[in-house]
Design a protein around this nucleic acid. Structure first.
Lengths: 240, 240
DNA sequence: CGGCACTTTGACGTATGTCAACTAGCGTGG
DNA sequence: CCACGCTAGTTGACATACGTCAAAGTGCCG
């Protein structure tokens, strides 16, 4: 939990060069010198309490954020008031690129638990790109991955039936947690059934029913929000 | 139709500086000198016949493309073979950013009619970014808009019922055509009902039925693929 | 003129949504 | 510390939007 108390960290621990997440949020192929320049840009951390907003729709787009600890959801609002969960971000992932096209944020970013982010002023990052080709390439990479992420979700929403949607949700989360060194077999869903349903274009009851079906089939075990993947190949087989 | 015969165009007409689309595909705030540097990078045109691919999934990502004449669809393939129409591009719009994250294309780009594109080698564009801050900002803008576009589609697929999906499809196309100086009230759908349905997560029959309902309601008139918007506010009212 | 690809429309099936009742944790305050 | 109430989750019965299957219609291209 010490992540949540930056004041108690040493100055060194606050720098990108020594951040535990660097393997995930720093690009490969940057020289030590380049990383130090990046360090100078990413100097602020911000703590967000569970349920609070890191930013809201229409806030001016000034920063992007790297999740240092905790997790977030991004909410998009329709003109008519309906909301759509766009994404869930876990530690090591980026947040805020939604603001790029309009110079203001297009969704709300809400902390799912007490969380901390690294604040990256976008205009300073852009300025860095001139000096360091590697950084520019990194930024393009980030943006490309955001596009790819949304593309995968489009495939889910456009093509898949409820069971497939939920299976790919579980498998996607498991993969991302694995990449970041967490257990791929057992983890906490930090979201309600309703939020999962909204994300997947389903209703809460459908999510609940399918979780039950997956349990009966022996694919997973659930205790509240703790999920254990028992038969990952079973889950994969759901995806036709 | 002369757009389709680049060989007959003068050298001048081939340059970005004199391209008829420049108002749409060139950024604002670039100096004449900068635009000439851009010109040098965007030197190749390519013609693609109806039904043929501009690029295919897994092709190495080398270029992005600006549609100079005609139109395209982008197709994404599931591991299990299902395909999803990701987007339709009309003249003045960009194509190919899907390749950015993996260094190879993530979908097939298929011409919906005989079409022509400007070829923009991405690494040369990246190189230009160092020289010209405006270009870098422009590239970020493009990427941001791609993210925004996918985000809008996510809202459609995640939240809307069939009538709303089709109404927003028609209104979106109308808006984009207007932006580019075409008639916003009457235009050719270059796609089959099946492709529209796939794009919107619906079946052909549903698309057809709802087109008929919209006609009966007096919102639109259809003759084959020619659509005329008669009551745009009626269409808008479908979106809750 | 004939075939073909696309579209429309109807009858019917089904996955998922809706509504409702019930249960289980969890936090709060007496 | 227990009781209460709240929110989240589960499960069932039923409703419905959309999908499926089938047949007939339309326009286009060779």
């Amino acid at each position: 939990m010490h992540h949540l108390h930056p004041a108690s960290e040493t100055a060194a621990a606050l720098r990108c060069t020594s951040c535990l997440l660097s393997a995930f949020c720093l690009p490969e192929g940057l020289s030590r010198e380049d990383i130090e320049k990046l360090d100078a840009v990413v100097s602020v951390r911000r703590t967000v309490r569970r349920g609070h907003a890191l930013y809201r729709t229409d806030d001016p787009f000034e920063n992007i954020y790297a999740v240092r600890a905790g997790s977030f959801k991004s909410l998009l609002f329709n003109p008519d008031g309906r909301e759509q969960v766009m994404s869930f971000q876990i530690a090591g992932e980026l947040l805020g690129l939604d603001g790029l096209s309009m110079q203001k944020h297009a969704c709300d970013a809400i902390a799912l638990e007490d969380s901390q982010v690294c604040v990256i002023p976008f205009h300073r990052l852009e300025a860095l790109c001139h000096d360091i080709p590697g950084i520019q390439h990194m930024v393009h990479q980030f943006l490309g991955e955001e596009i790819a992420r949304e593309r995968r979700l489009l495939m889910v929403l456009g093509n898949m039936r409820a069971e497939e949607r939920l299976a790919s949700f579980i498998l996607d989360l498991s993969d991302r947690l694995t990449e970041r060194g967490y257990s791929s077999r057992e983890f906490h869903l930090r979201v309600t059934r309703e939020e999962i349903g909204n994300y997947l274009g389903l209703k809460m009851e459908t999510v609940s029913r399918i979780f039950s079906r997956f349990q009966d089939a022996g694919f997973i075990e659930l205790q509240q929000k703790l999920i254990r993947i028992v038969d990952i190949d079973g889950l994969r087989s759901v995806l036709a």
